[in-house]
Simulated assay, not measured.
Amino acid sequence: MSTDPASKHVSVMLQRCVDALAPAISAPGAVVVDATLGLGGHSEALLTQFPEVRLIATDRDPSALEQAGQRLARFGDRATLVHAVYDEIPQVLADLGVPKVQGILFDLGVSSMQLDETERGFSYSQDAPLDMRMDQTRGLTAADVLNTYGHGELAHILKFYGEERFAGKIASVILREREKEPFSTSARLVELVRNAIPAATRRTGGNPAKRTFQALRIEVNGELEVLDRAIPGALDSLVVGGRIVVMSFQSLEDRLVKQHFAAAATNTAPPGLPVVPEEHQPWLKLLTRGAELPTEEEIEENRRAASVRLRVAERIRDRSTPRR
């Protein structure tokens, strides 16, 4: 029996994502981008169910690329895997000589592999080095953030990225405790956060360190800034009739995706015009009503699907340059 993590991995909402992309990528010569390759579950399904599709997949995590590469090796040159962050997709496509694509899939947040590998430090349930970098070859670690950021910076990321009500108090405790000994592993941080939060709050909402760990992960990987650049770049990379599917696992991501989709799907003409000029007409069509939630069956298949929000959109026209 295989011990390869990829072989045991169950991708979130796999068939729903494939079905959402299907109308755009079924024709011969179609190219689909998996912006967040991870362990390659969605990519494998796309390559299997659409025998003529070409896949271009990116991931910032070299370990994910290696494991997914083994999983997808049987597809040969139909699959091109690139070490890149997903806001670099337009450049990746340009380097490969691919001007536009028919489909793009984003599966945001931390991957199952990163959560399951204790030494990566993403999980608050096990003691591990405070790393949290999706690409361990570069950038600040979570420990660096905890040990060097000022009170205001720490409180800001805990409040806005972690939506933590007690951000200021937790930041104060972090600064006090790091004077005694710098932070290096997760168990100490988990205990500190637990003690900093009122007992009544600790009794609800799961592990009280969850929000702090989310905030640190987003800060370390620049996730919201990257996503804010990535969605417009992805939309511009779609052909007319091309589709984009985005799965978000926390409200900050979903809100950002919603804003970009809504802006492209909205009539921007001044009110009262008898005829709307083409440059003011929507160029994106929303195919989901709000964000779709997982079914009970999808959650049962993979518990990590419980918090997912799915949005799908289709490019309906080229963007024109306003006349001067």
Rank of each mutant, 00 (worst) to 15 (best):
I25C: 09
L108G: 13
R211V: 08
L65K: 05
L224P: 09
Q136R: 15
R319Q: 14
A262C: 07
D4I: 03
E66C: 04
G205N: 10
E314V: 01
D318W: 02
L14S: 13
D107E: 12
Q67L: 15
A265W: 01
L293P: 05
E292V: 00
K258W: 03
C17E: 05
L216N: 10
A30W: 05
T268M: 12
H151N: 10
F166Q: 14
D4E: 15
G152M: 11
V246E: 12
H83C: 06
V82C: 05
T137R: 14
P23I: 03
E225Y: 00
A155G: 12
F183L: 05
R317N: 08
K8W: 12
A64K: 03
E219F: 00
D87P: 01
A24C: 05
A73R: 08
Q259V: 03
A200S: 15
H42W: 06
E153Q: 14
V257M: 12
G69Q: 08
V101A: 09
S184L: 10
P271N: 11
R317M: 09
G150D: 15
P23S: 09
R120E: 13
L130M: 01
G103C: 02
T58K: 01
T288K: 09
L175D: 08
V33R: 06
S112T: 14
G206E: 05
D87G: 05
I218M: 04
V10I: 15
L287E: 14
E292C: 08
R303G: 06
V101M: 08
Q102H: 14
T212A: 14
T141Q: 08
Q214F: 03
M132S: 07
R303W: 02
L175M: 12
D254E: 13
N195Y: 11
R217Q: 10
P129G: 09
L81M: 13
K285L: 13
L140K: 13
S123D: 11
L39K: 01
Q114L: 04
D144F: 03
Q114F: 01
S111D: 02
I231V: 14
A306W: 07
D59E: 06
V31L: 11
L287I: 00
V10C: 14
P182S: 12
M132A: 04
